[in-house]
Nucleic acid binder design. Structure first.
Length: 848
RNA sequence: GGGCGUUUAGCUCAGUCGGUAGAGCACCUGCCUUACAAGCAGGGGGUCGGCGGUUCGAGCCCGCCAGCGCCCACCA
């Protein structure tokens, strides 16, 4: 207990109370409880890419309000925080921050000192040096995030923090992978995959996005092999003509039916290719007949696979045309090809169009169109398709039975808001491939796999060497498989490491297993898994949420949590989606400085669950006003009520009973709302009641409360004020932890965040009738209205008030007569039963 | 192309049983009133996107249409 300050203020509350919570372990998880008494939250580990924007604060604050509510309901909240530092965003940031590039063939340089600023030339460094810089930078970023989270008052247990590149995450990821491998759920395949030519890595279906790009139809003249004429074929990618292995039309298309089985000769290159039929060919598109290249798009891959066509790959992993011309083209064709060898797709297209124009094999002018093109979501150039050996994980993309099970799990999961489930369903229904989990990158969890090398020095990918689970995590590029010596690395008869790392989602899809201890801490695991809540953003339903369910299904046969709460998207003040490229990113820290954490939290919790919300300084201002009002109202209530106990049986006055009964309804509604993760509704109802409490109830009982202590009605006012304050503070606590803790400390010991959530039943005092408070407030408002429109002070006296109303309402008014007269400075209050309700107010004659 | 959501005061949004449209901000008029002038009390302001239907009665239920946002889709 600290006592009531003379001049309450929000200044310094954040520093004081976040320090207090840390010192007292207020949010420390105590595992010594049954599963049913624990509430475990699978926190989204934010990507620590160095930038903090409002989206980083929005969802986390909403989740924190739920964590705080559950804690006050008596649950032992398991609320860890993680940092997603693993993966491409960190690599990219390191490259830009230091001006370096990872070259895996370089040896480690123990004396390497990173430049302070990027130099003119990019510095090539070894993989271990690169990883050291990654570790260093994420440590700085994570410290900045933690500072913000603490300032925002997130009630996480900081002793449970994890990172997606950390020891536990690597051990868990590798263990899960080895088990997937043992059960046949993980497999490798040498197959065409979507490929980012800048990052030089394969990407998964979940990381794709379509972008509308300009392009053009080019009508190419293919020559019938029997010299009976030409076939015109539209393509947007004439540069891939050299990779053409067939042309395709719909089997029902009468125009081309006579040609099926015959051959055409490609322009420029003179390759003979068959005319084939496939139902995916669209008679409406272009000229109705398409060229199949290896590979121009994903449809080409389907045609190539299903029609068992040969491979004529022309693009390398760097996105440039290979130096050697593909098979099957004429010597003249090889000459033509030599001009595009080594060029990018864009450069090659220009050259090929010129060549086609010169040869007369381009019909008319290219016709510009815009069309959707597949991009890596973090990439800047269109994806290509190249063939490479990759690791895959079964996710229902090629397996109807697993897909059906995953759909069923989606129905078993409780979604909030419920309509978000359709995103999961539609994603799953559109899946067409297993999950490609290998990435040709560096800062990630390595695959715990080596391969034998035969006597001729070839890696034998069928002969896997894997570690024991107890030895995890391993780095196969420095650790040795059992039975081998380091000197045998990359030697004939020896072994070689799998060079790849896992997709970052392959690790973050295991956050429930990482935080709950899984194999390493079975006691914790039993008490926290399956978890209670997965809060997250809508944009990662197809990745994080879906992948996590896949892993839990494969590993545990069921859901990783019972509930998911999907938050909305943060829009900038002009209601545009915030993004770095738009330059409209608002960062939270300056706003915390200006309005305070409680105000920022108030804004975040004003956003309805799952609803996109604009950054709105007006709402933050309102939040700040509310926090100040809480301070002042509390100061008054606690000051006027002396040492009154919060004892319901001392509430002796009808108006007081009435107010408490009305408050009970608010408690009920706030409780129901929070139980369904609707923090916003709880806040709105609490706030509405609080303002009416300040404007009406406090004004009505003020003069009575100032009365002689000991009098029953005086005591009733004091007790009621305290009960209501204590109740309202606790309902505000999940959203505004600082100001509620501050006020609580004025007269209570211990943290409000460990206090009990209010119970509505305790407020339902016998004989309480909500009508009394309601009618009293309405009559008082009428009195105020007359004073205000008459432009006199609210303190000015009223000679007479006549209230005409129904008997029931007049009886209610009668019960609060003294308080209404005192609050309105009314000399004479008269009532009259009537069918048309009215309030007449006669101001006293101004004698001044 | 399929789907989800949304459309209410100038702005941001509530409106959960179908029963005479609400809040905050902004604007205007007042008030130093013994918690709060970073305050308080009032006021003006609406064809609830459009059309049709169900109903005694529709912001709410049904159908169609439109705008906006998003998700999914085989994109030659």
């Amino acid at each position: 207990m600290a006592g009531i300050p003379d001049k309450p203020s929000l200044d310094g509350l954040e520093a004081r109370w976040s320090g207090f919570w840390e010192d007292h372990g207020t949010y420390r998880f105590d595992r010594g409880h049954e599963r049913s008494e624990i509430f475990s939250i699978d926190t989204p580990p934010p990507t620590v890419s160095g930038s903090l924007h409002m989206g980083s604060a929005f969802g986390y604050v909403q989740t924190d309000s739920i964590a705080r509510y559950q804690r006050m309901r008596g649950r032992h909240v398991f609320y860890p925080m993680g940092w997603d530092d693993n993966g491409l965003p960190t690599e990219r940031r390191v490259q830009n921050y230091f001006g370096v590039r990872c070259e895996p063939h370089l040896p480690y340089d123990p004396g390497f000192v990173a430049p302070e600023k990027p130099g003119k030339e990019t510095v090539s460094i070894s993989r271990p040096n690169f990883l050291e810089l990654c570790e260093r930078l994420v440590a700085e970023d994570e410290a900045a995030f933690e500072e913000l989270w603490r300032r925002l008052g997130l009630s996480v247990d900081w002793t449970l923090t994890y990172t997606t590149i950390g020891h536990s995450a690597r051990r868990t990821s590798q263990r899960a992978f080895l088990r997937n491998l043992a059960r046949g759920e993980a497999y490798q395949a040498d197959a065409p995959t979507l490929w980012d030519v800048d990052f030089r890595t394969a990407v998964a279906q979940a990381e794709l996005e379509d972008r509308e790009m300009p392009g053009a139809y080019h009508a190419l003249k293919f020559h019938k092999a029997d010299a009976s004429g030409d076939v015109l074929i539209d393509t947007t990618r004439p540069e891939l003509l050299a990779a053409c292995v067939a042309v395709v039309a719909h089997p029902d298309d009468a125009r081309f039916q006579p040609l099926f089985g015959s051959e055409v000769i490609t322009p420029l290159y003179g390759a003979r290719v068959p005319i084939v039929a496939h139902h995916l060919a669209d008679p409406e598109k272009g000229t109705g007949i398409a060229m199949i290249c290896t590979f121009g798009d994903t449809t080409d891959v389907v045609w190539w696979r299903e029609l068992q066509l040969p491979m004529r790959a022309v693009l390398g992993t760097d996105g440039r045309f290979k130096s050697d011309a593909p098979e099957g083209i004429t010597p003249d064709g090889e000459t033509a090809y030599a001009e595009i060898a080594g060029r990018t797709a864009k450069q090659a297209q220009k050259i090929v169009v010129e060549q086609l124009t010169a040869s007369g094999e381009l019909e008319g002018e290219p016709r510009p169109i815009t069309h959707p093109v597949k991009f890596f979501e973090k990439g800047e150039r269109p994806l290509e398709i190249v063939t490479s050996r990759q690791w895959y994980l079964r996710n229902g993309g090629r397996d109807a039975e697993l897909r059906a099970e995953l759909l069923a799990l989606g129905r078993e999961l409780h979604w909030s808001p419920s309509n978000m489930r359709v995103r999961y369903d539609s994603w799953l229904e559109g899946l067409n491939a297993d999950w490609l989990v290998s990435r040709q990158r560096y800062f990630g969890v390595p695959f715990p796999v080596w391969y034998r090398i035969d006597a001729d020095g070839n890696s034998i990918y069928d002969e896997l060497l894997v570690p024991q689970e107890t030895d995890l995590p391993v780095d196969p590029s420095t650790d040795c498989p059992a039975g081998f010596e380091p000197a045998q690395r990359d030697q004939p008869g020896g072994f070689t490491a799998d060079p790849d790392v896992m997709d970052t989602w392959a690790t973050s899809s295991l956050t429930p297993q990482i935080v709950t201890g899984w194999v390493d801490d079975p006691d914790l695991f039993a008490r926290t898994f399956p978890m209670d809540l997965r809060p997250q953003g809508p944009e990662i339903i197809r990745t994080w949420l879906f992948d996590t369910i896949v892993r839990a299904r494969l590993e545990h046969g069921g859901l990783p949590w019972t509930d998911t709460a999907i938050n909305g998207w943060v829009l900038d003040p002009d209601r545009k989606k915030m993004s770095k490229s738009r330059g409209n990113v608002v960062t939270p820290m300056p706003l915390v400085e200006e309005y305070g954490s409680d105000a920022l939290r108030y804004w975040a919790c004003n956003g309805r669950p799952g609803v996109d919300t604009a950054v709105d300084f007006g709402i933050m201002k309102v939040g700040r006003k509310l926090a100040i009002k809480v301070l002042n109202a509390s100061k008054f209530v606690l000051g006027v009520s002396g040492d009154a106990a919060e004892a319901v049986d001392e509430v002796a006055t009808d108006l007081d009973r009435s107010m408490l009964v009305a408050l009970a309804d608010v408690v009920d509604e706030a409780t129901r709302s929070f139980d369904s993760f609707d923090y916003a509704r709880s806040l709105e109802r609490t706030e509405r009641f609080f303002w009416s409490f300040c404007d009406d109830y406090v004004e009505l009982v003020k003069s009575r409360a100032y009365g002689v202590a000991g009098d029953a009605s005086v005591r009733s006012a004091a007790v009621s004020l305290r009960i209501a304050l204590s109740t309202l503070l606790r309902m505000f606590a999940p959203v505004m932890p600082y100001v509620s803790e501050e006020v609580w400390s004025w007269w209570r010991d211990g943290s409000i965040h460990r206090a009990e959530w209010p119970a509505a039943e305790a407020l339902r005092v016998r004989g309480g009738d909500p009508l009394v408070y309601q009618v009293a407030a309405e009559v008082l408002a009428e009195v105020r209205k007359v004073k205000s429109t008459s432009k006199v002070s609210l303190a000015s006296p009223v000679a007479r008030v006549l209230v005409v109303d129904t008997p029931a309402r007049l009886a209610a008014l009668e019960a609060a007569r003294a308080d209404v007269c005192d609050a309105g400075k009314v000399a004479k209050l008269e009532v009259e039963v009537g069918t048309v309700a009215s309030v007449q107010v006669e101001l006293a004659v101004n004698e001044s």
